[in-house]
């Protein structure tokens, strides 16, 4: 069944059809939330709240890019969670793996996994050091693979703003990685 058809059925109250949409998009939404928040529990909460809000607001969806619409809700939920997270410390990548979040690729040698995990930890730290607007632009562009136009839609800003946030965010992240020796100067 096509996405537009599932959206239409969901608008009519068919929760089964909506859950098919959830299946398609839950990984992308959770990844955005996790990269934005750096906390597995907060990311889980933000993801669940995103889908509940999306279901309630679905009648207001007037067509277009459903993923961008969903990610826009997710970005707002992340902002709410960030406010709440200021009051408690952020969990590390290690605690995330203790929570059962799998980062290992099937059949990957342990040494490669260790290097990737170390680099992943540095990038995670670098992303969290960025201001939220720049972090969101970098995640959407370089991890989620959205175009400038899609990012502008998700963040409700102009293409020029996206370009500027991305430029500053990447430059800051590069400096962060250079300082930690993850990039050769």
């Amino acid at each position: 069944m096509e996405e537009t058809e599932l959206i239409q059925l969901s608008k009519e109250g068919d929760i089964g059809s909506f859950n098919r949409l959830v299946e398609f998009h839950e990984r992308g939404v959770y990844n955005l939330a996790f990269r934005m928040l750096g906390d597995a529990q907060a990311a889980e909460d933000a993801t669940q709240e995103t889908f509940i809000s999306a279901y309630r607001a679905l009648r207001g969806f007037r067509g277009g890019d459903f993923r961008a619409w969903l990610l826009k809700i997710a970005a707002n939920k992340c902002r709410d969670q960030l406010r709440a997270l200021r009051r408690r410390p952020i969990a590390s990548l290690d605690s995330m793996e203790e929570d059962g979040v799998s980062l290992i690729h099937a059949g990957e040698p342990p040494e490669d996994y260790a290097i990737r995990r170390e680099l992943g930890r540095e990038i995670e730290g670098g992303l969290l050091s960025l201001p939220p607007d720049q972090r969101l632009a970098v995640i959407l562009s370089d991890i989620q693979g959205l175009s400038y136009k899609e990012i502008a839609r998700v963040t409700a800003s102009s293409i020029g703003t996206v370009r500027s946030r991305l430029s500053r965010g990447r430059a800051r992240l590069r400096d962060y990685l250079l300082e930690r020796g993850e990039l050769s100067p």
Binding site: E26, Y30, Q48, F51, Y55, S102, G120, I123, L177
Partner: peptide, 16 residues
Amino acid sequence: ILHLMPMISIPRSFAL
């Protein structure tokens, strides 16, 4: 490097 960042597996289903 950012492009190589893996997609994290979801810890559970978020179906409603």
